[in-house]
Design a protein around this nucleic acid. Structure first.
Lengths: 199, 199
DNA sequence: CCTACCGATCGGTAGG
DNA sequence: CCTACCGATCGGTAGG
């Protein structure tokens, strides 16, 4: 009377699907991701794949949530040891740049791609991207405020302007790495970040 | 014995198709663009639409070429009157920011989207995007060099670094406008550009 | 987790 | 520029 698969096995399969889907969505986009292609890649039936999620949109949301989790574990989590303010931010951006340079289609770049892909498509996926980006902005804003309060940055710093420009550097790094495959991109990004975080 | 359509009428139809395709590709992506949907939007048959181009990839390339043309007519062409160097660049970026802020899915933003969409898909479309971006970079580089030579910018200016950061500002503006619909984005972008072009 | 199937749509062609 | 059609694939469901 035991079930065909244990709870742990089911969760492992779900993880395998998400990992494969994330890789596929990195090249094809989250909308270009298809259940049939995913099933072939995994050696499963379409019904077996989609059964874990219900429908394509739920799968998209699960892939996105997984990418956000990986990003948080890789970037902000590694910066917790640094002192609040500019040091913690410098560390976080450094980690992000490493993360982008390292793999082909890991988390951070993926979020950027999905933001572009869904900027004209209202719905739950767009909302989830918006929430992830807002969460990152809040993180940066809190650290910038701490930097201003502790005197690391001038009192009259336009925090939102700095966030805007930091964001631009990340987007430029992403494009340089993903599209142009320019090996000098990480160094350029680090230089720009350093200047924005200098007093 | 006269043909069913004159050469001029055929060209006009082709233009209508491209305009409609550009609008569709702005929300759906250049790959998400479908001949069937386009035919419905235009009140034509699928064969009537695709007959003008041959196949979908040729249509994608035509849409891209059209977007690049519009961009050139709108941005660099309007800056020719300004003095070479920082003034011309300031004017060009100003026009670009206006262009982004103005419409929903006009040229400049479109190029950025397509660059993201095709960063993992080698082929003629990616090559065409690469060429368009390279052409813009060359334009900026020439003006920056002129600015350095004429003393508008310091002799030790790292021109490629400035290009990288200018690119970041445009990408941040694009994301702020297209995704976040933030009305403060143009002002933020102009401020960042002004700082990068100041001696 | 599978097989077998559904209606809809895909890109594209033949022929006029 | 149209009608009529092709094989392939889409997301998803029924039933086990």
């Amino acid at each position: 009377m035991s079930p065909r698969k244990s709870v742990a096995e089911t969760a492992a399969t779900r993880d395998r699907i998400i990992t494969s889907a994330l890789a596929l969505a990195t090249t094809e986009g989250l909308e270009g991701l298809t259940i049939g292609r995913l099933a072939v890649d995994l050696g499963m039936s379409k019904a077996g794949v989609i059964g874990h999620f219900g429908n394509k949109e739920a799968l998209q949301l699960a892939v996105l949530a997984s990418a956000v989790d990986r990003f948080r574990l890789r970037v902000p989590a590694r910066a917790v040891g640094a002192a609040p303010g500019t040091q913690r931010l410098a560390r976080a951006f450094d980690e992000w740049i490493d993360y982008m340079a390292e793999g082909e289609g890991h988390g951070g770049c993926f979020l950027t791609s999905v933001a572009t892909e869904f900027d004209g498509r209202p719905g739950p996926v767009r909302d989830a991207v918006l929430e992830a980006l807002a969460s990152w902005s809040t993180y940066v804003k809190d650290e910038l405020r701490a930097a201003v309060e502790s005197g690391q940055l001038p009192k009259d710093t336009d925090v939102d302007q700095v966030i805007f420009e930091l964001d631009g550097v990340i987007l430029a790094a992403n494009q340089s790495i993903q599209f142009h495959r320019d090996p000098r991109a990480p160094a350029r990004a680090r230089r720009a970040i350093a200047r924005l975080l200098a007093a």
